[in-house]
Nucleic acid binder design. Structure first.
Lengths: 167, 167
DNA sequence: CGCATTTGGTTGATGTGTCAACCCTGGCCG
DNA sequence: CGGCCAGGGTTGACACATCAACCAAATGCG
């Protein structure tokens, strides 16, 4: 029909192929990992991320804000998700501060992450680390950091006025 | 609290750091690209994907099944999303076959993708292609293909019985 | 022929993510 | 002191994804 709409000077065929491979890879990997986590342990990727962060903290308790920094989620997403997790007994909100409730890992939550972490890590190794090999994996980690930095730098200077605040 | 739950023999610190960088990168990039597409053109990433596929086809019309192959979406996701897109006038379903309706790109849909493709491609270039540079980008494309292949091979041999059908 | 199976597609329920609006408390400045 | 306002957190509405169940035309085989 057009064949050229995305074929501007912007990306040539080889680059586009690489980009599409990347998109496919990330979805394939994510779908696969998520589905197994869900089926075998009843945890979503989001659940997993929260539980990992909590379990890695020294006290097993954090404020939602800290979790937000660690995960880079929107605050409303965090709030919604923590409510759902609380309903399922994976975490608990404790009102120590009478303003900023603390998010506490419950025994059940701890048990859940302990149960699924090895299988998850094994899959990451099998499908990612082993396939790439150490060198390429480290290189990808560095490249990733560069991309994140580039995006964030741009967000600083170029985001829409409602958000900017910097100017 | 534990610090060690994900620190099994499975992934050492360096690997884990690379993995987390990768996760962060892919979310940062995706969030950024999606948000701009949404704000500037009112299109979600899913809309975009469908429109790209349709617009690249010779006739501007495909069956849902073909779109499914191209995008690797679940069929129900496809169905739901096509319905929403039809409601918004981006596509149309035509019952030529009286069984398998054809998905047709409308003028409005074509206009939409033509309008947003350059800006989107420019962002991909700016935040991904230019940051990585051609060589690393191509290498990542190849690595991605390997990962996809590994996951898919495993899915073949090791998926849960309901799905397997093999063996 | 007739019935079962396959297969492409739809539907409904539910969980999840995003946006915008709101609430509440503490700090700031008059 | 007192009003304001910034920032963490919540809520509601809506878009989206996934799962399981379902539907109907086509195919296959007794």
């Amino acid at each position: 029909m057009m064949g050229g709409v995305a074929n501007e000077p912007w990306l040539d065929d080889e680059e586009q192929q690489a980009w599409r491979n990347f998109l496919l890879m990330r979805r394939t990997l994510e779908t696969h990992l998520t589905r197994h986590l869900q089926r075998e342990f009843g945890l979503s990727a989001s659940d997993f991320e929260i539980l990992v962060n909590l379990s890695e903290s020294v006290t097993g308790r954090m404020r939602a804000y800290e979790l937000g920094e660690a995960t880079q989620w929107e605050k409303s997403r965090m709030s919604h998700h923590l409510s759902r997790m609380e309903k399922r007994g994976l975490i608990r909100k404790e009102a120590c501060d009478a303003r900023y409730p603390e998010i506490v890992l419950t025994d059940e939550g701890l048990a859940a992450i302990k149960a699924c972490a090895p299988a998850h890590a094994r899959r990451v190794r099998e499908f990612f680390a082993d396939v790439l090999g150490r060198d390429r994996m480290v290189a990808l980690g560095e490249a990733s950091a560069e991309v994140v930095e580039a995006v964030e730098k741009h967000e600083h200077t170029n985001c829409p006025p409602e958000i900017r605040g910097c100017g």
